[in-house]
Design a protein around this nucleic acid. Sequence first.
DNA 1: GACTTGGTAAACCGATCTGTTTACCAGTGA
DNA 2: TCACTGGTAAACAGATCGGTTTACCAAGTC
Lengths: 204, 204
Amino acid sequence: MAEDAEVEGKKLEIIEWASERFYEGGFHATGIDSVMAGSGISKRTVYKYFSSKEALIEAVLDHYGSDIVDELFTPARAAGHDPRRQIMAFFDIRKAMIDENPIRGCLGIKASQEYVGKHDGIAERGKNAAAYVERAFIDLCEQTGLADPVNLGKQISILFQGSLLLSQVFGDSAPFVAARAAVASLLNHAAVPSRRPGPRTAKK
Amino acid sequence: MAEDAEVEGKKLEIIEWASERFYEGGFHATGIDSVMAGSGISKRTVYKYFSSKEALIEAVLDHYGSDIVDELFTPARAAGHDPRRQIMAFFDIRKAMIDENPIRGCLGIKASQEYVGKHDGIAERGKNAAAYVERAFIDLCEQTGLADPVNLGKQISILFQGSLLLSQVFGDSAPFVAARAAVASLLNHAAVPSRRPGPRTAKK
DNA sequence: GACTTGGTAAACCGATCTGTTTACCAGTGA
DNA sequence: TCACTGGTAAACAGATCGGTTTACCAAGTC
């Protein structure tokens, strides 16, 4: 994921602008003409750097992957060494993002939903974004030393994506508050491995 | 919700056919021509019954609301009187639906995501569908007699929508298994009102 | 100055979109 | 038999789609 370290200049400029417009307008509903309107970049230039609209969307999603790291993961890690704190920070950060810009969901999943069964490259990138977030939660759960961190991480991932979806549909960040409480409950009542506890068992 | 008791005949036929095609192809990505292709119903007839594509989509979503009742709520109620059982049945039923037809998500939420900020009537119907499901979970939670049934119901709703979304993205019903376990944990560890406990406090 | 590079602006192409119109066909009742 | 009703099939209009082409322009560089 986030393989676009080499993207720069005009290409990056196109991706960032298009990303914003696709975010607001959806993929099928937004044409290349309207996507670049107001950017000062001509359609000719877009097709110089990208072979098709789908290729542009793929590049946008790849870039979005690296954005996720910057906007979500890094601040979460800054919450401290305690993995539980970092998990909670995920929800707080995303809630704050929703509060200041209510229409935003997960661009990758949005794309995946629009292109599932129709364009594999795009749907695959959406799937990867979801899997990446899930993996991050599982990693953090492993650090807590609780039993069955894989399932726990998946459950937290479901709560995260569910609250992201509903906050978008309702236009309200409240689902994150409920989800956060659910995560706390799951973490508090998760079993602790009986013998030979895993590394970093803080024991609380 | 589900105000289409009077819909019948050709109009209902159009709605049911279109519903299926929109389900598979999305709303923006599927034109009226292709939506009715193979149905034996002409576009002329569609526009005799519906003033616009958006009006057709609204009718589809209204019909979908009543479908939800038939396909999800009624079988769940058949699971018995125990509200916890009914909640679990929700997840089992939806998982089984996914297993036999992997691409299906919630049509209302799909529509809401495609038309949020662009067509209020459609987005509103998606919001209503989500609120309706949430309300159903809250009602069941109230019947359990557990404390704070509103929050509990919202959390279960988030788990439900999240697993529905992820099962669609991943093309796999596994998220429902994880979500179901999370629901069980939340229900088992929810506080019981300190005084005057509700009916059926299993205490486990 | 001539030539190249990298870009904008806008016309253009064929396809497809929403929505309308025309022409035709199959029943049905008087 | 004749008119009417409700429908299909298909052409059509105007807009917009993805994508290409043409014309122009500005900045370097020789």
